[in-house]
Amino acid sequence: MLQTGDQFLVKKINKSIVLETIKKNGPISRAQISEVTGLNKSTVSSLVNELIQEEFAYEIGLGQSKGGRRPLMLLFNTTAGHAIGVDIGVNYLLAVLTDLQGNIVQETMLTIANLSFENIVDLLKQTIQALIDQAPPSKYGIVGIGIAVPGIVDEHGQILFAPNLGWENVDVKSIIQGHFHLPVTINNEAKAGAMGEKIFGVGKGIAHSVYVSLGIGIGTGIIINNELYKGCNGFAGEMGHIPIEPNGKKCRCGNRGCWELYASENALLEQAKALAIPPAPNEPEITLAHLVTLADEGHHEVINLFNQVGEYIGLGLTTIINTFNPELIVIGNRMTSAEKWLINPITRIVENRSLAYSRKQLRIQFSGLNMHSAVFGAVSFAIDDFFANTRISL
């Protein structure tokens, strides 16, 4: 909605500043908010009272005195509403219900066997409905649904191409929004992962970072100057499809020799099958978890397999390092479970192949959020969207 009238625009901006200050610095007093923001005390007091009435903030009692009256301390009301985040993987669906600070209230993990669009949409609806039914009562209820997908997503949330799911030009946003009558945001899962790490993970306080999602495929999310870099049409980060073998294998994207064909979970599993490594007892196919177990038990072929894949991962990371000169590279998604067997070949290749200047202040770290990076990012997009719309309605 177009804002008219200077006083309403100023109030909107000031109220947003006060709310963000409480969210980031609480418990905090009105006087401290005035000091931090530079807003006068009467303005802060008025805006805080509105936020309390709207249940976005509440008073928690008296703080320590600095020579005068003890101040009333304020805290952000994280349970004023809840959000749902979903990470649609190639063979899994991870969904969480969180409060407005991203704290998980409920979580669901499903294995996807049937990759048809209709089946995944049905699972998505069932999973979201189950989380809605489990949500505690709150002032604003479910404020939004964030969905992360392994594919190319435009600025309107349209999924243009998800090769590993076999999707092209599908409008999941309209389907889910129409079904639940709630705001829905759709984003690429690696971009969501980058935001998840920036807000909740090892990327906190890092201005320049790259999140590398190592799953069935590979995607990257790029943070430059504390902002998610999307490119001119929102498609930046498809580095899993950088060719590293000129005459390599054919990729689902239509190209040949893409990085993800040699450095992803899928590449690992395909090579394990080629070596006739048997699956775990009572399992129909070989899995990443089983390969990690075999490596831990000293299986030489599997250890060598991890070493080869780790070297290919390192080659791709070298391109990222030389191109973006990040402070931090975060490796996330399912391959984090194999950190023990991947970190040495990755480090060795990066040290041998990347420019010394580019890696001087670099850290490479496996995600502590494991598979939750993207789902936390999806939640953050939904919550940000809610607060953006709330501010506009002032």
Rank of each mutant, 00 (worst) to 15 (best):
C232H: 14
S213E: 10
S213T: 05
K249S: 10
R256S: 12
G217E: 06
N225P: 01
C232K: 11
G215T: 04
H241M: 05
L214Y: 05
I244P: 05
N247T: 11
G248S: 05
G257C: 10
G217F: 10
G217Q: 06
K250L: 14
T220K: 01
C251G: 11
W259G: 03
M239Y: 15
E238Y: 05
C258D: 07
I223S: 02
E245A: 07
I216P: 03
G254P: 07
C232W: 09
E245Y: 12
N225H: 12
G248M: 02
C258P: 08
C253W: 07
G221A: 02
G231T: 00
N226H: 15
P243L: 06
E245C: 01
H241E: 06
L214G: 08
L214F: 06
I244S: 01
E238Q: 14
G240R: 00
M239H: 13
I216H: 15
R252M: 12
G237Q: 03
T220G: 03
P243F: 04
I224T: 10
G257L: 09
G240M: 09
E227I: 00
N226E: 14
I216L: 13
G240T: 08
G257K: 11
I223T: 03
C258I: 10
I223Y: 02
E245V: 12
N233H: 13
G215L: 08
I216V: 14
N225K: 11
F235E: 07
G221L: 03
G217P: 03
I242P: 08
Y229M: 11
G248Q: 07
E245K: 14
S213D: 08
C258T: 07
L228I: 08
R252V: 10
C258M: 11
E227K: 12
I222V: 14
G237E: 04
E238N: 11
I218F: 05
R252S: 13
R256V: 13
G215P: 03
C258A: 10
C258V: 11
I224H: 09
K250P: 00
G257R: 09
I222C: 09
I216M: 15
P243W: 04
C253K: 08
H241L: 05
R252T: 13
I244G: 02
G248E: 09
R256Q: 14
I242A: 10
F235D: 02
C258Q: 09
V212W: 06
V212K: 02
E227N: 12
C253L: 00
G257Q: 09
E238D: 12
G248K: 08
R252L: 15
I223D: 00
I224W: 04
R252E: 13
S213P: 09
G240S: 09
W259F: 15
I244T: 01
I224D: 01
G240W: 08
E245R: 12
G221I: 06
N225W: 04
G217S: 01
M239S: 10
C251E: 10
I242C: 10
V212A: 12
H241D: 04
N225A: 07
G237A: 07
L214R: 06
